[in-house]
């Protein structure tokens, strides 16, 4: 019992970190799902969009915006940098889909997947040209400040403020997103295209434009994930590896399912953090991928998905 009481605050601490990573995976996984629902392809460069977002944030946050707004304006410059990153990601998403998706839209999905793979190679190497090979350190709203609270008298839980910020920010983003999809004309058009492209275009929806906007929105989500992750991680080409964890999140939740992406993300993040401390820190990624393969084999429709074996 004493052991449990001693361990509990540590476990809570790790779970908070795990859930924060989980939110990041969930955001990237949502991007996969929106594109999957709209056009039935998986964008293999989505992980690299996270990296691009991180770099755009680092580039706009550190030198440019801080100098515009003068010293001591970290708070406001964070939001400006976030906005600039989002605008940049819209461009990245639109241009990418115009180059690697649109000309191939009538080809076999395999061909499109290969072209997104080529985009992934390009983005990684472009990042080396544009921002160099050294990882870039950034700070968020909170820097490396720690948040402490007492857990029912069992001990103190100490986590980075950034983790708490990620949880709150993701929650707000999801509320805004769900309002956007149910209340606005654009959001409803996006849903219509995802349900049935032909019917949507017969109803007068400009389908190619809505698809482009879906790509742009998926890139914004990846970019936001990069911004949220940048203060914890260093920004580097290695950020692209988030992509595979986010697939795992999508698969675990059920590919194409919006709630599934988030739940899957939270599960993957928790599994990763807990297996790092209780199983093996060097094999934590391998454990996540074993979960991925196990799900694909045993429950390919994920936790929330419908059975879609025919279209696998």
């Amino acid at each position: 019992m004493d052991f449990l009481a001693e361990q509990l605050p540590i476990v809570v601490q790790q779970l908070i970190a795990g859930l924060a990573y989980g939110c990041i995976y969930g955001l990237v996984a949502l991007g996969y799902n929106f594109i999957w629902n709209a056009v039935g392809i998986v964008n293999l460069a989505q992980g690299d969009f996270v990296m691009v977002g991180g770099y755009l944030y680092a580039a706009s946050f550190v030198p440019v915006v801080a100098s515009w707004l003068g010293p001591g304006s970290a708070g406001s410059s964070f939001w400006t940098a976030l906005l600039l990153t989002a605008v940049g990601m819209v461009l990245v998403g639109m241009v990418s889909q115009r180059i690697v998706y649109y000309p191939l839209r009538a080809s076999h999905p395999r061909t499109i997947m290969i072209s997104t793979m080529a985009l992934s190679i390009f983005l990684k190497n472009f990042a080396i040209v544009a921002w160099g090979t050294y990882p870039v350190a950034t700070s968020g709203l909170f820097g490396q400040k720690w948040f402490r609270f007492d857990l029912f008298g069992l001990g103190t839980v100490t986590v980075l403020y950034q983790y708490v910020f990620i949880l709150v920010f993701t929650a707000i983003l999801l509320v805004v997103q769900s309002a956007f999809f149910s209340r606005t004309r654009l959001g409803r058009s996006m849903r219509a295209v995802a349900q049935d492209q032909l019917a949507a275009s017969l109803m007068g929806i400009n389908t190619p434009l809505i698809i482009a906007i879906t790509f742009a929105y998926a890139s914004i989500l990846a970019g936001v994930a990069g911004v949220l992750l940048a203060p914890i991680f260093l920004v580097s080409q290695a950020m692209g590896s988030i992509g595979l964890k986010a697939y795992t999140a999508s698969i675990v939740g059920g590919f194409g399912n919006v709630i599934g992406a988030l739940v899957g993300g939270l599960l993957v993040g928790s599994i990763e953090v807990l297996s790092a401390s209780y199983v093996s820190s060097v094999y934590k990624d391998a454990i996540v991928f074993v979960v991925l393969i196990a799900f694909l084999l045993l429950r390919p429709q994920g936790l929330f998905g419908k059975k879609v074996i025919g279209s696998l």
Partner: peptide, 14 residues
């Protein structure tokens, strides 16, 4: 399709 590709990516990383 994609499911196989993703499985092989995970397998390669392992």
């Amino acid at each position: 399709g994609f499911y196989l590709a993703i499985t092989t990516i995970g397998f390669g990383e392992i």
